[in-house]
Computed example of a mutant assay.
Amino acid sequence: MTAAPTGDAPKSESMTLRAAFADLVQGARQRELWFMLGIQDIKQRYRRSVLGPLWITVATGVMAAALGLLYSMLFQIPVAEFLPHVTVGLIMWNFISGAIREGSTVFIDNEGLIKQLPAPLSVHVYRLVWRQALFLAHNLIIWVALLLIFPRHLGWEFFLFIPALALLLVNGVWVAMFFGIVATRFRDVAPLLEALTQLLFYVTPIVWMTNTLKENGGAVAERARIAEINPLYHYMEIVRAPMIGQEVAAYHWWIVIACTIGGIFIAALAMRQWRFRVSYWV
Rank of each mutant, 00 (worst) to 15 (best):
M1L: 07
T2F: 06
A3V: 06
T6G: 02
T6E: 12
S12R: 13
S12F: 10
S14F: 10
T16R: 09
A20V: 13
A20P: 07
A22F: 07
A22V: 04
V25Y: 14
R29G: 14
Q30I: 10
S49R: 14
V50T: 15
V50R: 11
I56H: 07
A59D: 08
A59T: 12
G61W: 03
G61N: 03
L69F: 08
L70K: 01
M73E: 12
F75M: 04
E81T: 04
L83T: 01
P84Q: 04
T87D: 00
T87V: 03
W93K: 03
W93N: 10
N94F: 06
V106S: 05
L113E: 03
I114Y: 08
H124S: 07
R127K: 10
L136F: 13
L136E: 03
H138A: 03
N139E: 12
L140V: 05
V144P: 05
L148R: 00
L148V: 10
F150Y: 13
L154F: 11
F158K: 06
I162G: 11
L165I: 10
A166H: 12
A166E: 00
L167K: 03
F179D: 00
V182K: 07
T184A: 11
F186K: 05
A190S: 14
A195I: 13
L200Q: 06
L200W: 12
F201S: 09
V203H: 06
V203R: 09
T204F: 13
M209H: 11
T210S: 08
E215A: 15
G217C: 02
G217E: 03
G217A: 06
G217V: 06
A221P: 01
I226V: 15
A227M: 14
L232I: 03
L232W: 11
E237R: 10
V239E: 10
V239L: 09
M243T: 07
M243C: 01
V248E: 09
A249D: 13
A258D: 06
G262P: 02
F265R: 08
F265Q: 00
A267M: 00
A267F: 00
M271V: 10
F276C: 05
V282L: 08
